[in-house]
Structures are given as C-alpha cells and as structure tokens.
Amino acid sequence: MLAHAILSGLVFGCYFTLVGLGLNLIFGVMRIVNLAHGDVVMLGAFAAFWLFALIGLHPLISSVIVLAAFALLGLPVYYLVVPRLLAARDSEMLSIILFFGVQQIIEALATIAFGTSERSIPGRVLGRGPLHVLGQTLPVAWIVSAAVSLLAVALVYLYLYRSRVGTLTRAVMVSRDEALASGIDVHRVSALAFAIGVALAGLAGVFSPFMLGSATPAMGGDVNLAAFAVIVIGSLGDPRGTMLGGLIYGVALMLMQTYMSAWANLLPNLLLIAVLLVRPTGLLGRQVRRA
C-alpha cells in the first residue's frame, strides 16, 4: 500500500507539474496571477475531446495541435490585456481580478458551446491494460501522461537555460525594470512566455480526461487550487521548483488518500502554508521576505 501510494504519487505528481508549469512561467515573468489558468486547461481538455470524437485524432497528435493553437491564441490575448495591466499601480493584485473576469468569460462561452455534461476520452486510446512498474500496477494512460509532462518540463528548462531568448526571459524574471533598462525587448519576451504558458495549460488539458476522470466547463476552479499549491510549494518562477512542488503534492495527496482519505485535500494546503512560512519563496526560491 505504501509503495503503491508513493509510486502513483510520483507519477501523478509529474502530471501536476505540467498543470502548474504554465501558471508558474507566466507569474515568474510577468508577476501576474493567471486565475483563468484552470479554464485554459479545461479548453485544452475539450479541444482534445472534440478532436477525438469528431475525427478520431489520437491525443498525442492533438497535444501537438493544441500546443501550437493555444500558443497562437495566447499572443493576441497578451497584447490585448497584459501591457495595459502591467501599467497599473498594483498589477500583481489587479491581475487576479482581470483574470477572474477572463475566467468567467471562458466558462460562460464553454458552457454555451459544450453544455454541462462530463466528457472524456477512453483510457485505452493511450494503451491497453495496466502496466507493471516496480512490482506495482499503474494505468498505461498515467505513464504516458507523466512522460509527456516530463518532456514538457525538460523543454521548458532547455528553453530557459539553453536558449538566448530564455536567458533574456530569466533576466526579465529577475528584474523587469533592469531588463528594460538594459535594452531587452521586454514585451516580446513576455509575450512569448505568456504564449508558452497558455500552450502548456492547454497541453495539461489534453491529458486531464485521463488523469482526472472527465472534463466539464466548471473544472477550472479545482485545477487552479491544485496548481497554486504546486507552484508555491516549489517556488514561483522556476520550472525545477515546479517539478519538486508537483512531486511533493502528488505523493502527499496519495499518502493522505491511503491513511486518512477524508482529509486528503487538507494536506496540500497545510503544506503550502508551512513551506511558505519556513521559506517564503518556495523550496528553491531566492529570499525576498518583506520587512
């Protein structure tokens, strides 16, 4: 039981890393909280569902399409709202409200377009039968989702640490003003990060029917709560921190389900608070405590 809980927690945690990854990137670069993140995940789920239901497209192919399409969708959204938002006095806090509005719009449109019933893609599409790993059995769909998540984390890491624009992105993360002063095209860097963040949320959505059972237009709120826990436990802005946060979240959730299931949702929240109080910027974060 213990081994199973830990192993599936790690696999599940990989997926939750992906869920938090986009939110984290956007926060890290722009210092804005994308409250509509969970709703973008939902849109990704419905995109994959319809691509599968209408033309029988395999989710792995859908995920490439969703990545590209959502990135393209993210760019105009960035230029429409973010520069204006960042010009405001307290943009970090205002972003919460702005994206609350965006979330309402997305959920309303999704309800009109898709209805309210649960939707999903059969698990067998990603491979049949349970898989035996280290003496434990796990659904194949979980392993595939976790593998895709790991790949996404690796790519984001390479982007940030092995590419030129990634270096600029990190410069913006450290200090937006100084980056601006040193001649970096902050808006181009931010727009790219925003587009990638939205695309990652969409990607997480493609695999949500396998990891979360089913998708509805109302799922965004719960996804957000989990994503917040993951990125704060890790540390805002750093993809490796998100990975750590995702794994801790996954294992903690599964251990709670095993030993005190009715309290399972409490632990991630307590963990988040505890981590923040001990290390206010997350486990891998730099120190920036106020006063």
Binding site: A262, W263, N269, P280
Partner: peptide, 26 residues
C-alpha cells in the same frame, strides 16, 4: 502569513481559507 508579500500572501491566505473549510466540512 503577514511575513509573506504580494501574491505569496494572497495564495497562502487562500490555502488557509480552504484548509479551514476542509476541517469544518469533514
């Protein structure tokens, strides 16, 4: 929690509210 700043405080406070809810509704 007041030792935290900005979004960290906002999110930690949200988590705290959720935790209280989960205790009371258990």
């Amino acid at each position: 929690l007041l030792r935290l700043s900005g979004a960290y405080f906002a999110i930690a406070n949200l988590a705290a509210a959720q935790a209280v809810y989960q205790v009371i509704s258990n």
